[in-house]
Amino acid sequence: MEENNEKKSKVIVEVIEFGPLKITGNFLIKDLQRNKEESPGEVRLCRCGKSANKPYCDESCKK
């Protein structure tokens, strides 16, 4: 049971090669530019600078 709890709150940050930054777990994301704050549980953030939906990935990196 303890292990399950740990898994739930554990934050995993995955730098996807030639792709976005994937974050899962208990985190709070603050977008200072757009003045937004949320805890979505999972997010994919743009790392290439080309997304039209920043800070999120819109798969422009694949093109």
Partner: peptide, 24 residues
């Protein structure tokens, strides 16, 4: 370990992660 990790999107800058997490 139980506190939410802070993810800040800096204006015209990087993503700043703060707290305890696993990164690959």
């Amino acid at each position: 370990n139980n506190e939410p990790v802070s993810v800040k999107i800096m204006p015209d800058g990087p993503i700043v992660l703060k707290g305890s997490f696993t990164i690959s």
